[in-house]
């Protein structure tokens, strides 16, 4: 009887794991199956031309460029905010400091806030500042979205820096400001992983840019112009009744999935490589 129960549950467990992995396969297969036939060079090299939305020529370059601009801008801004915070709570504050722990807790909590809320907040902020839906607005909302991720994943690595390393540099007479260089070098693989993770999250998120970045058929040339994004390109084109336009949504989904796959595998490779070198 005990044997049977064990066997029964073990079978269920393996089944559950297969269902989960099977869903992943199904998702990738569905995107490949519909995306590949719709994919061509025009998709990634041209912007929509006249009649694009009734199935005529053009591509998705506007969305690809918009997504890239927003993600690059947001990552740079996010790093400018998060690196000092990570440094501060790991170097300047004593271990087990209350402020450090509450900062970690708060970035964990902010990480869980849905992107639609960041989008809505970004929107109210823009109304308050008198900005229209634009590249800048999108960057603002996405920065809010990814900063907690950046803080958390860099902090994981920064926490592991041996105390001796700090002490050695400090005992040579360096100020804490001067040992930042040493610390940054130590956590650089962590910074890379953090960037890859947050870029993956930022590039795929639709709800945060929906209100804030707007949508356009051209490539934005300044911060105050609206910007198209890949997730929104998928979302808008999928709701079109015309099959050719829907196909473009699938092509966009394929592009986005490939980007995200590459990012997450690279992040994994980096964090593995780093943990091998850990003391």
């Amino acid at each position: 009887m005990r044997r049977f129960e064990e066997l029964f549950f073990k079978t269920l467990m393996i089944l559950a794991t297969f269902i989960i992995l099977g869903s992943l396969m199904m998702i990738l297969f569905a995107v490949l199956k519909r995306g590949l036939p719709a994919m061509n060079l025009d998709m990634i090299t041209k912007i929509p031309s006249g009649g694009f939305y009734i199935g005529k020529e053009g591509g998705l370059l506007n969305a690809i460029a918009g997504s890239l601009f927003i993600v690059i801008g947001a990552t740079v801004l996010g790093l400018l905010i998060s690196i000092p915070i990570v440094i501060y709570i790991n170097i300047y504050l004593p271990p087990k400091s209350f402020l450090a722990n509450i900062t970690r807790l708060s970035s964990d909590v902010l990480f869980g806030i849905p992107s639609i809320v960041y989008g809505a907040f970004g929107f109210t902020l823009m109304v308050y500042l008198g900005i229209r839906a634009s590249l800048f607005g999108g960057i603002l909302a996405v920065t809010l979205l990814i900063t907690p991720i950046l803080i958390r994943s860099m902090d994981e690595v920064a926490k592991l820096i041996p105390k001796d390393l700090k002490d050695a540099a400090l005992s040579l007479g360096a100020t804490r400001y001067e040992i930042i260089k040493v610390i940054l070098k130590q956590i650089s693989p962590g910074i890379t992983t953090a960037i890859l993770l947050s870029v993956g999250r930022a590039i795929g998120d639709a709800a945060s840019v929906l209100f804030t970045a707007g949508y356009t058929d051209s490539i934005p040339t300044s911060l105050s112009q609206p910007a198209a994004t890949l997730p929104l390109a998928i979302f808008f084109q999928l709701s079109s009744p015309i099959p050719e336009v829907q196909d473009r949504a699938y092509a966009a989904a394929l592009i986005l999935t490939v980007i995200v796959l590459v990012l997450s595998l690279t992040a994994r490779y980096y964090s593995r490589k780093f943990s091998k070198n850990k003391i």
């Binding site: 992995l21 998928i234 999928l238 989904a253 997450s264």
Partner: peptide, 17 residues
């Protein structure tokens, strides 16, 4: 890694699926 990939797939792609 496959669970990681599942975590990384954007919501909109889940929607497409």
């Amino acid at each position: 890694p496959m669970i990681d990939i599942l975590a990384g797939i954007p919501p909109v792609v889940y929607g497409v699926w």
